[in-house]
Design a protein around this nucleic acid. Structure first.
Lengths: 357, 357
DNA sequence: TAGAACCTGGACAACGTTGTCATGCGCGCG
DNA sequence: CGCGCGCATGACAACGTTGTCCAGGTTCTA
């Protein structure tokens, strides 16, 4: 039986040893298992994949060989052959942002329920890096992509989508292509949050938010303006700070609107990072200033006063997006849809403070 | 030129259409690009991989064909051929735990610096799921694994490690196998934290921690005992609560040790989740109880009083582990090592309160 | 008891890429 | 003018798996 010769004697193996970095023994393949079990290659494949048509006795022999050799199926080869990878990609902007933890987890749960693996990477808010990552994942032939976009032009994904890569955008819509997107009701949430402050007697309300080129920031700003307009309040330019996120500049912006000629009596913070910084600023003040923040923050209830927020359900965003992705993968072509999830106003004290002037 | 016939006419393509789920056009391959550019297959490969030996003119023709067809290299096939995947896996226990955000991010940064992709999944503290995930990643032929273990028996990884999969454990050591591990100094951190309380006059100090079968929990408990022993304080059983983590039971445990016959004047919380719950309990009390927690928590400085913690550097844990992983991948075989990172006591007020009895 | 139906097992090609090696061309130099 | 050398290019096999199809053997039925 000359086929049972050790692998290292075959020319291809010596070759591999030279070119690739595999350091220890080469991994056994189905061929090796077959040789050891004294069966054909395809029979091993059948056992590994639980396909029918193998005698219990043969199966046992194969299993023993697998065990003895420490064989593990090479999924790269499998993917190459089958075309589908049973894995999906998730691209988010910052793994360390607590907002994305539950989102990412929810996506993973759904993927797992569908027998798929989740591969994720973060774009660090850099559109180029987002594109690089997305295309790298496509090269790996992920079946689908969940993208929290950093850029605003996603035409680079067109060939991929056409080739069958399911794609869902979350948190912000895709730029310049038609695609599914799952969003929070940023406009409505912000409008309700600001209306809440107005209902508690505030008229001069500040807004600190991210750059309006970011969709969520623009929508929240729009919500702020809408609430003010609904109440017949004219907004002073000095009450708004757009495009600042780093703590130091947020601090200065907050201090400016608190001490100007028309000092605000309440602040609406456009995202969780801004909220945290504003809390620090307000903590150093003698007078009380009301605060409502967009996005929940941990321990918000333990602060004095508790922080009133417009909470989005990050887990629901992720779950909805992932489920939509798998619906794309299961069925026929769906027309791109925009799904908007409601936000929830959580009152904890800071948003119910009366004006203090 | 009969080779330019559309792909769908080749029998293999009809076959693929029937068996795999690819819905739209099939993806173009190098062969298609070659046909369109009127060059050989290998030339396309050279262009795609930036290999030398291609005339500028030829290269341009190939690039145009790539552009026109929307070609993207199939990395599965590449991996199959080359043996290495340029990707590493990270297995952690809960993506939603804020402790793992920075850790995961640090691992990703290092991977990126080495041109590798990060694939991650969470075990949800379930040893079986950890194993399942780890083996799935190995089947994908990741080059290496960073594991935050949930289980305590990792012999299932032996064949993989022998086959050349680099492996580093983080936060907790591997069970029953020799492997690299990167840890925080849980023992020293806890001992210092408790000693800090003792230095501020406390004698009756409570400890609430996770199950001692978890390595970190056991080490922290050991640190607590060591500090108490060093100070010559005999520990009453009623001061210790081991193995509780869910908020309700932590609450009851805290209340019990605060109201017993020998009520504690200070509490050492064994992890961030316990700390948060204890803060809530203490907030409802009239008398002041000192608190030191293991793990930092966000906004800890904004609470009244600020929360004193023993902080671990999650990012450094991740970075160190990932760098060790790539050193394994680069070089020759390294002997397994145990790397311990220092913790840092962050005083914010709650740990400096005097005993109030 | 012959033939059919069935079951198990294996040979083979194909998935898309890359490493090796061979070919053919143009050019410089003896 | 011819020889060889370097360079661009392409043919081909191999990576490890799975789908197809066929062979050989067993069991059941007429």
């Amino acid at each position: 039986m000359p086929e049972t010769a050790p692998r290292a004697d075959r020319p291809a193996d010596r070759l591999r040893d030279r070119t690739s970095g595999t350091r220890y023994g080469n991994r056994p393949t189905m061929k090796d298992v077959a040789a050891r079990a004294g069966v054909g290659l395809k029979t091993v494949s059948r056992v590994v994949n639980g396909e029918p048509g193998v005698t219990p006795d043969t199966e046992r022999r194969v299993q023993e060989a697998i065990e003895a050799l420490g064989f593990r199926r090479n999924d790269s080869a499998r993917v190459l052959r089958k075309g589908r990878t049973a894995s999906i990609g998730l691209i988010l902007e910052d793994l360390a942002d607590p907002f994305y933890g539950p989102l990412s987890r929810a996506v993973e749960e759904v993927a797992r329920a569908h027998g798929a693996l989740l591969i994720n990477g973060s774009s660090a808010e850099d559109p180029d890096r987002e594109q690089e990552l997305a295309l790298a994942l496509c090269a790996r032939r992920v079946d689908g992509l969940v993208v929290i976009p950093a850029g605003d032009d996603h035409r680079y994904l067109e060939p991929e989508i056409r080739a069958g890569v399911a794609t869902v955008f979350v948190d912000r819509p895709a730029g310049r292509i038609e695609a599914d997107v799952v969003l929070s009701d940023n406009f409505g949430g912000a409008r309700d949050g600001v209306a809440h402050l107005i209902a508690h007697g505030h008229r001069r309300i500040g807004f600190i938010g991210d750059m309006p080129r970011i969709h969520t920031a623009a929508e929240r700003l729009r919500g702020y303006r809408a609430a003010m307009e609904d109440a017949g309040i004219a907004v002073a330019d000095s009450w708004m700070s757009l495009g600042v996120t780093d703590p130091e500049r947020v601090r200065r912006a907050a201090e400016a609107m608190l001490t100007g000629p028309e000092p605000v009596t309440a602040v609406f913070a456009g995202n969780n990072r801004v909220t945290v910084t504003v809390i620090r600023v307000l903590a150093g003040l003698s007078r009380q200033v009301a605060l409502v923040g967009f996005d929940d923050i941990e321990l918000a209830d333990l602060l004095q006063p508790g922080v009133t927020v417009v909470a989005q359900d990050a887990a629901a965003l992720g779950r909805t997006a992932a489920e939509r992705l798998f619906r794309q993968l299961d069925g026929t072509h769906l027309t791109p849809e925009r799904i908007e999830l409601p936000t929830r106003l959580v009152t904890r004290g800071s948003g119910e403070l009366p004006p203090s002037d």
